[in-house]
């Protein structure tokens, strides 16, 4: 099965794996993510990256979970990869080199949760205005009370 195959390929990359409600989820060492994705795409037909997102576990540490939702049409299988990142300066390798689809998803995670992606070709905010302060989907970011003046926005 897939977790064992991954383990055999690089034992240090897999931290743990479990099947929950029929869905396979594997925790990957953060520094190995790009290599693991490349391996899964080339050797196991995970041709599609469905999405990249992240979960903020504040105040727990490591605070961020970056979640990669992979899909293989050929195997008709979905797979979830997870990497945990610290709350202080969270940073992880970009997987845009593996799937170009990761581009906007990683920008979104950066914009809304403040996780930086190394080697991303164009890491800018995507949904919020460029000069916005803070990352709205973080748990310590208030829901209301933000004031934003749109008049000065550069076009």
């Amino acid at each position: 099965m897939l977790p064992e195959q991954l383990q055999a390929w690089d034992a240090s990359a897999v931290l743990n794996s479990r099947i929950e409600r029929g869905e396979l989820s594997i925790e990957i060492a953060a520094e190995k993510i790009a290599a693991v994705c490349r391996y899964l795409k080339d050797e196991h037909q995970f041709v599609r990256l469905s999405a990249v997102t992240a979960v903020d576990r504040y105040p727990a540490e490591p605070r961020f979970e970056v979640v990669y939702l992979l899909h293989s049409i050929e195997r008709n299988q979905r797979l979830r990869l997870k990497c945990r990142l610290p709350g202080e300066a969270p940073e992880i390798d970009s997987v845009t080199g593996v799937w170009r689809a990761a581009d906007w998803y990683e920008r979104e995670v950066f914009d809304l949760l403040g996780v930086r992606f190394r080697n991303h070709p164009d890491l800018r905010r995507i949904l919020m205005p460029e000069d916005w302060n803070g990352h709205p989907l973080r748990k310590d970011y208030p829901v209301t009370g933000q004031k934003y003046n749109y008049t000065g926005e550069a076009l």
Binding site: S50, A51, T53, V55, D56, V67, L69, R100, A101, D103, W104
Partner: peptide, 26 residues
Amino acid sequence: GYYVVSDGTSKPYRVFIHGPSFGNLQ
């Protein structure tokens, strides 16, 4: 796709919405 995370309470902990238009527009 909806990626829904629950922490056991009466509110969702995280809801990530993967809309097809987002990927298609890329």
